[in-house]
Computed example of a mutant assay.
Amino acid sequence: MEQTSTNNPPTLLVIDDIPENLTLMYQLFKDEYKVKGANCGIRGIDIAENSLPDLILLDIMMPEMDGYEVCRRLKQNPHTRGIPIIFLTAKAEKIDESRGLQLGAVDYITKPINPDIVKCRVKTHIALKLANDLLRGENQSLGKEVERRTREALKQREELQSIQDITFYAMVSLAETRDNETGSHICRTQHYIKCLAQQLRLNPLYQDEIDDTMIDLLFKSAPLHDIGKIGISDTILLKKGKLTPEEFTIMKNHTTIGYVAIQKAEVVTGKTMDFLKYAKEIAYYHHEHWDGNGYPKGLSGRDIPLSARLMAVADVYDALINRRVYKEAFTHQDAVNMIVDGKGTHFDPDIIDAFLDITDELWEIAQRYHN
């Protein structure tokens, strides 16, 4: 089962013991990718080692060797460990998502599949894979172009910036596939946090801590605050109604998943980047509370990074004034009142003072970038 092309499209490997599923995936992706299929884990490992596909769709429940074991072996092999793996699982199957993520899988897709969703997921994960290949120098033709440009000082800087942006937008696009509101939410919170930082800068206590560079980096890194939600299943992320305590425990893991994902991207580059430093802080700590009752670390007060304290206000404000699958939208004034009620408990008091000075501006942003 293979689609050939002279344009060298990305290669997609589907490992599933049910022939009908292999045929379905082939028909779905044959026009965009070179599609290979394997009806068992051993055959899938062999194809992966020999063809090095750009992405693997891997069924979990298979005879002889299940998907977890296939994933473990692929991630142990230096030649195949960099291939992203998306698990395929039937809705009725009881799965251990944390086990799959710990083994190195990047996502889960529930069967029966929604064609539009699965195509979007595959597209964004392949984009991130290609971006990481670029950063590691595995793309020889583009690597030669980078090498040529490094001989020119000005163009070298532009090329490195382009590589960074490719990785950044690939990661953000992953978050945008998870629900219909994430893209607009990302845009709005970017502008909220910039306005909050600019206003807080007027406070003498923060004049030395906040400068133009920091504000620019906050604006650039803020979209990654919920990148960890790529590791949370749709059944929890899109649930209509209140989460159970067990489900909320899983949901809270998105902060850690996001931190680890950004940290791995940083490792790929081989150096520390300022915007990724803020992105890690925001992703990991934006659910911490000023009084220490947040998660994941239970930090309090100024032990919480300033970037995360700012994002906490921006994120909650946007969540309150917009409809979600689990609630209706609150009015702007109700949202403001609820945030003020959290001053000194949920939120940094200084940031709430800055928030109150610019509520009209924040509401204007909310209207400008409405869903």
Rank of each mutant, 00 (worst) to 15 (best):
F275A: 03
I304A: 03
A279Q: 06
G301V: 14
G270C: 02
G270F: 06
S300F: 15
V268T: 08
G270Q: 00
D315A: 00
A319T: 10
V313K: 02
G298M: 10
A265T: 00
M311R: 03
L276W: 15
T272P: 03
M273P: 01
A314T: 04
D303K: 07
Y295P: 02
Q263S: 11
N293M: 14
H289K: 14
L306K: 01
T272H: 09
L320P: 00
V267D: 14
V316A: 10
L320Q: 07
K271V: 02
A283H: 05
Q263L: 11
A312Y: 08
P305K: 02
E266K: 05
N322R: 12
D303E: 15
Y295D: 11
W290Q: 05
E281T: 01
F275N: 06
L320A: 00
S300P: 01
Y317S: 04
H286Q: 08
G298D: 10
H289Q: 15
L310K: 03
K271C: 08
H287G: 05
F275W: 14
V267Y: 12
D274E: 11
A319V: 09
T272G: 00
D318C: 02
K271W: 05
L306A: 01
N322M: 13
G292C: 08
A283D: 01
P296I: 09
G298C: 06
R302K: 14
D315C: 00
G270Y: 00
A265N: 10
H289E: 14
A308W: 07
K277W: 14
W290V: 08
R309N: 08
V267W: 08
H287L: 15
V267A: 13
T269P: 06
L320E: 07
A314Y: 05
K271R: 13
W290L: 07
D303Q: 13
L320K: 03
I304W: 06
G301R: 08
I282P: 00
G270I: 07
A319D: 13
D318W: 04
H289W: 13
A279V: 09
V268Y: 07
V316T: 13
M273W: 09
K297D: 15
D318I: 01
R309Y: 14
A312V: 08
D291W: 05
E281L: 05
T272M: 06
W290S: 04
D274S: 09
G298P: 04
D318P: 02
W290E: 09
A265Q: 11
K277I: 15
A308R: 02
D315P: 03
W290F: 14
K297Y: 14
A265G: 00
P305G: 04
Q263P: 00
Y284S: 08
A319C: 12
G294I: 12
N322Y: 13
Y295W: 10
R309C: 11
Y285P: 01
E266G: 03
Q263G: 00
K271H: 14
I304F: 07
I304C: 00
